[in-house]
C-alpha cells in the first residue's frame, strides 16, 4: 500500500515536471519568435526610411553616385534576406553603407543644417538604436531558450517534442569598430 502511494507520488511529480517544462519551453519559444519579429519591424522601418534620405541627400550632393548605388544594392539585398543569419549579413552591409553616406554628408554643411535632413537623421539614428537593442534583447532570450533546451533534465522534454535551438543574430567584428572612410 505504502509502496503504491510512493510510486503514484513519484509519477505525479514526473507529470508535473513534464507539464511545467513543456509550458516553459513554449513560453520561451514564443518569446524568441516575438524578439525576432521586433527586430524585423525595425529593419523594415529602416528600409522604408532610406529612399527619403537618399532623395534629400541627392538634392545637395547629386554627384556622389557611387554611394547611392551601393545603398540601393544593399537595400534590395536586405529586403530579400530570409532568416536571422542571412538578414544579419545583409543588414550589416546596409549599416556600413549608411555610415559612409553620413561621413560624406559631413562635407556639405548646408545639407547638415537642412531641417528635413536633421529629422531623417534622428529617425535613422533611433531606428539603428532600436535595431541594436532589439538584437541585444533577442540574443538574450535565445540564450535563455537554448540553455533550457540543452541542459538536463529539461533537454529530455525538449528532445521528445523536438524543440530546436534558436539562431543567434550575430554582429560581425567589423561593425563594432568605427567606420573606415576613404576620401
Amino acid at each position: 500500500m505504502i509502496a503504491l502511494i510512493i510510486v503514484l507520488g513519484i509519477l505525479a511529480l514526473l507529470v508535473i515536471f513534464f507539464i511545467g517544462t513543456y509550458n516553459s519551453l513554449v513560453v520561451k519559444r514564443n518569446r524568441v519568435q516575438n524578439g525576432w519579429h521586433q527586430i524585423d519591424v525595425q529593419l523594415k522601418r529602416r528600409i522604408d526610411l532610406i529612399p527619403n534620405l537618399v532623395e534629400t541627400v541627392k538634392g545637395y550632393a547629386a554627384h556622389e553616385k557611387a554611394i547611392f548605388e551601393r545603398i540601393a544594392e544593399a537595400r534590395s539585398l536586405a529586403i530579400n534576406a530570409k532568416g536571422p543569419a542571412e538578414s544579419a549579413k545583409a543588414n550589416n552591409m546596409l549599416s556600413d553603407t549608411l555610415k559612409t553616406l553620413f561621413a560624406v554628408v559631413e562635407n556639405y554643411p548646408t545639407l547638415k543644417a537642412n531641417e528635413n535632413f536633421m529629422k531623417l537623421q534622428e529617425e535613422l539614428t533611433a531606428t539603428e538604436n532600436k535595431i541594436a537593442f532589439s538584437r541585444q534583447f533577442y540574443n538574450d532570450v535565445v540564450m535563455d531558450f537554448n540553455n533550457q533546451i540543452q541542459m538536463f533534465p529539461s533537454n529530455v522534454v525538449a528532445g521528445m517534442f523536438s524543440f530546436k535551438a534558436g539562431e543567434f543574430y550575430t554582429v560581425p567584428e567589423a561593425e563594432r569598430e568605427a567606420p573606415k572612410v576613404k576620401f
Binding site: Q38, Q42, K119, E122, E123, T125, A126, N129, K130, F133, S134, Q136, F137, D140
Partner: peptide
C-alpha cells in the same frame, strides 16, 4: 518631442 519619444522607445526595447 520626437527625439525624446524615440529615445524612450529604444530604451524600452532594450529593457524588454
Amino acid at each position: 518631442y520626437a527625439q525624446l519619444h524615440n529615445i524612450v522607445e529604444e530604451v524600452a526595447i532594450a529593457a524588454g
